[in-house]
Simulated scan of single mutants.
Amino acid sequence: MTQTMTLALTTPAGPVAAGEAAAIQSRIEATAAAMQAGDLDTVLSGYVPGGLVEFAPGAEARGTAALAAGYAEFLAMQPRITFDCHKVLVAGDLALHLGAWTVEGTAPDGTAIRDGGFSVVVLRRDPDGAWRIVIDVPQATAG
């Protein structure tokens, strides 16, 4: 069961529409679905060109080539991703997505992998209205 919590910040133009939060959650879920399908091109299309992913604490990848290399390794495990909850905050053309997740897959040696965590994702709305990921921290920790 997935829970969704949406907080809309008030802007000078008024409260942010619930549709914005749904569009952001949709971007996150579409990116996860592309990961599950092993579709690297679609995963990368969800990020801005200079996007950053912290694949592990202290291991940052910046830009399309670095993200492609990091995700190629991740996609090799044939991940199955489940979100336990989503929380979305929107302020103008910036958004913050917070989510608890679980992933299952297979290591190169055939060993089953199961992991989980809490992700923090910053998104930006493009001029065409699409939301794209700027910063992605799938294993967010305080340290």
Rank of each mutant, 00 (worst) to 15 (best):
E54F: 05
V53P: 05
F55Y: 04
L44D: 02
D41F: 00
Y47L: 01
G70F: 11
G63W: 13
Y47V: 06
A72M: 10
L44M: 03
L75G: 01
L67P: 00
Y71K: 04
P57H: 02
M77P: 05
Y71R: 06
A66R: 08
G63V: 15
S45K: 03
Y47E: 02
R62T: 11
Y71E: 00
A76Y: 07
E73W: 13
G51M: 04
L40W: 05
T64A: 12
F74R: 15
F74K: 15
L67T: 01
G70K: 09
G70Y: 06
L40D: 00
Y47K: 05
G70V: 06
M77F: 07
A72R: 15
P49V: 08
G58R: 08
A68F: 14
A69I: 14
A61V: 07
R62L: 12
A76K: 12
T42K: 09
L75C: 04
A65Y: 12
F55G: 03
G70T: 04
A61F: 06
E54K: 03
L52V: 13
P57N: 01
T42D: 14
M77A: 13
D41L: 00
A69T: 15
A66P: 10
V53L: 11
L40V: 02
L44T: 00
E54H: 06
A68Y: 12
M77I: 11
A56M: 09
A76V: 06
G50N: 13
E54V: 03
G51P: 05
G51K: 01
V43P: 00
E73P: 12
F74A: 14
V48H: 11
L67A: 02
G51S: 06
G70S: 09
A65Q: 13
D41E: 15
L75M: 05
L67F: 07
E60F: 10
G46A: 08
G63H: 12
L44C: 05
Y71N: 01
S45V: 01
Y47F: 13
V48Q: 11
A76G: 08
E73Q: 15
L75Y: 01
V43I: 08
A61G: 02
D41W: 00
G46V: 00
G50D: 10
G50Y: 07
Y47H: 08
E60T: 10
V53R: 11
F74S: 14
A59S: 13
S45M: 09
P57T: 04
A69Q: 15
P57I: 01
L75K: 07
L40Q: 01
L52A: 14
L44Y: 11
F74I: 15
T64C: 09
A72C: 09
A56Q: 09
S45H: 01
T42V: 13
F74P: 11
